[in-house]
């Protein structure tokens, strides 16, 4: 009897995780933009990984920091070597949840405002964040877009005094990821 129950429990566990409806992408887009009177710096990353569970509202992002490309090659090198320290912290990630899941109908095409909260880890430092964006549902894709600001100092990123005037204290982050429904 005990055994049967255990097996039943395991079976149910597996069954419940399989039934979840998931959206995923491996080539999402994130851009950041830093603006100061001295210069504007923009970096693009088109290899962002993201996954969304439309049943539970869970949302995760994983960003390989080396994949950000800059206008100036030297900036990219400094970004990786000195600021973000990609050798120590290769990825940034976000683990969170859509708070207003009941307002989003993944079965019906449309644009839905989304509120997301969770934990953002950059440079090995985790901060709780709460941001707003939109999710546009069309057929089998969920298109997640958001724009928000992060404070560089919150993530223990040290900017040397020589370039302090060139790099903004607050950086604007733009997220644009088309997640595809995963076939079960």
């Amino acid at each position: 009897m005990k055994k049967t129950l255990n097996i039943l429990a395991i079976f149910l566990l597996i069954a419940s995780s399989v039934s979840a409806q998931r959206y995923i992408t491996k080539n999402g887009y994130i851009r950041f933009f830093s603006s100061t009177p001295v210069e504007d710096i923009k970096a693009h990353n088109r290899q962002v990984q993201a996954a969304l569970d439309s049943e539970s509202g869970e949302l995760v992002f994983k960003v390989l920091m080396k994949s950000f490309s800059f206008k100036k090659a030297l900036m990219q090198e400094h970004f990786n070597e000195k600021f973000i320290e990609s050798h120590k912290y290769p990825n940034s990630n976000f683990k969170g949840k859509i708070v207003n899941l009941d307002e989003i109908n993944f079965k019906k095409d449309g644009e839905y405002p989304a509120k997301v909260e969770g934990k953002l880890t950059i440079h090995g430092v985790t901060q709780a964040i709460e941001e707003e964006g939109t999710i546009t549902v069309k057929n089998d894709t969920a298109h997640a877009e958001s724009q928000f600001r992060i404070t560089v100092a919150d993530y223990d990123i040290e900017i040397p005094s020589t370039v302090r005037k060139n790099i903004a204290k607050e950086v604007e982050v733009t997220v644009d990821c088309k997640l595809k429904k995963r076939k079960q």
Binding site: L5, L8, A20, A50, A51, L52, S56, E58, V60
Partner: peptide, 25 residues
């Protein structure tokens, strides 16, 4: 044990769901 069972079923996916989601990546 029977009473615990449904609890386990409900709690576990919630706790592991996110790791699974991250694991997918």
């Amino acid at each position: 044990k029977l009473m615990l069972l449904p609890l386990i079923i409900f709690i576990t996916p919630m706790a592991s769901g996110q790791d699974d989601l991250m694991g997918m990546l």
